Simulated scan of single mutants.
Amino acid sequence: MNTTFKHALCALSLLAFTGAAFAQHTANDASALVRKAVAYLKKNGKEKLLMEASNPKGAFVDSDLYLSVYTLDGKVVAHGANPKLIGVDVSQLRDANDRYFIKDILSAARSAGTGWVDYKWVDPASKALRDKSVYLEKADDLVIAAGFYK
């Protein structure tokens, strides 16, 4: 194999790996993940959902697409990216524009039972402040949410 071909093959392999590691998720991906979690909750119960949603290698984590599960008063009961948040009341959390976005998520859950909330957050892949949109559904006494960077 000549050297130029080997270098091209290595570059293509690196691009393929990088693209998979930082996949761009969509609104459809976020809403599908939440619907999958709601179905899982109905089939397996609350305890199993919370355990699986908090498992960083579980069925509800795909790079920067993961579940956040809250009680109706804003306490985190499962988190696919940061298990240290479990048990924390995040209702006073603000985004980069000083917006209480968790309150907006909880309000949408209480009023419509489902919806979208937009806010600004730091993208863990790029470390840049970006627009993020989260889809949520109220299921029993939980608010199940997943978001994507726009």
Rank of each mutant, 00 (worst) to 15 (best):
I144M: 10
D118C: 05
K57A: 14
S111N: 15
R94E: 15
Y70T: 08
V61R: 04
V122L: 14
A125T: 12
A39M: 04
T26M: 03
A39Y: 00
A27S: 07
G45I: 04
T114Y: 14
K120G: 09
D131K: 09
H79A: 07
W121F: 12
G113S: 06
A20I: 00
V90W: 07
V90F: 10
D62F: 08
L14R: 04
G115I: 04
T18E: 11
S63D: 13
D141Q: 10
K127G: 08
L136S: 11
K132A: 10
L15G: 02
P56E: 06
A125S: 15
G58E: 09
S63L: 10
Q24P: 02
D73L: 05
V61H: 03
G115T: 03
K43W: 02
I144E: 08
G19C: 03
A78I: 05
V143T: 08
L93W: 04
V117T: 15
V90A: 15
N82Q: 14
K48W: 02
E52Q: 07
K103S: 11
V122G: 13
S111G: 14
H25V: 00
L15F: 00
L93H: 10
A59T: 03
K43C: 06
R94M: 13
E137Y: 09
D118F: 02
A78V: 04
L65G: 01
V134R: 14
A108D: 08
Q24M: 04
P124N: 01
K127S: 11
S54F: 00
G45V: 04
Y40L: 06
S126A: 12
N28K: 12
D123W: 01
V117Q: 15
A30M: 01
Q24A: 06
F22A: 04
A21P: 08
S54E: 03
K127I: 02
A139I: 05
V77E: 15
V88Y: 14
R110D: 14
K46W: 00
K36P: 00
R110L: 12
K36Y: 01
H25F: 01
V61P: 05
Q24N: 07
R94H: 14
L142N: 06
Y70C: 08
N82A: 13
P83Y: 02
K120Y: 06
K75S: 14
